[in-house]
Amino acid sequence: MTTLELARVTKRFGSGHLEVDALTDVSMGVQPGELVAVMGPSGSGKTTLLSLAGGLDTASEGTVRVEGVDLSSLGARELARLRRRRIGYVFQQLNLIEGLTAGENVSLPLELDGVVTRSARGAALEALALMEMAELVDRFPEELSGGEQQRVAIARAVVGERILLLADEPTGALDSVTGESVLRLLRGHCDRGGAGVLVTHDARFAAWADRVVFLRDGRIADETRAPEGPESLLAQTARR
């Protein structure tokens, strides 16, 4: 089943002569195990797309489906529940709540969902271990570096049984080496069966995706194709 599907989605802001179309007739899908990157200049609608994908906003036209469920058929509380259980967000920075430790930040969605604290902590520790951050579970965000904070943010976005990861310029505030490690983690999540949408303007990081979608003026302008047929010569010679 397609994890995320946008079918002819349009999002309009404002009204009357101030009306602005942030997205127009956008259709795309993300399968389990797939990492899709969305590239485009600022104002092309990338952030709007991500808001729609996670139910933070509703489409003016078209449907958004997560695991087959039409998001517009869900109420605010059910959408929130979806964000607790199946969808995770990672932002460019300030992802973590200052007053909570890394572990508490990661276990937050589960606790909000009613999971008993001890189990939630256990799940949080697992997620942090995947991100190689297990030793820093009791540190506060201000004690962590930018890269470490992003790792914790990703841990929170994937904790429990969440499958759809929505990342909005997660590497924006990081240097390239740290950024690469973040991308590896996103890749790892998808390799484990999750689905991810990565919004970025950096081609190097977009290249980690299975598919890159180009967004321009609210529309999908282009899309890279997966390589078909035998692997490229390059890849072959690379393997000795």
Partner: peptide, 16 residues
């Protein structure tokens, strides 16, 4: 651009 990104994807796969 598309072509360049596709190439990038290939190179990145090597890094995996």
């Amino acid at each position: 651009r598309r072509g360049a990104v596709e190439v990038l994807q290939e190179y990145t796969r090597l890094k995996r």
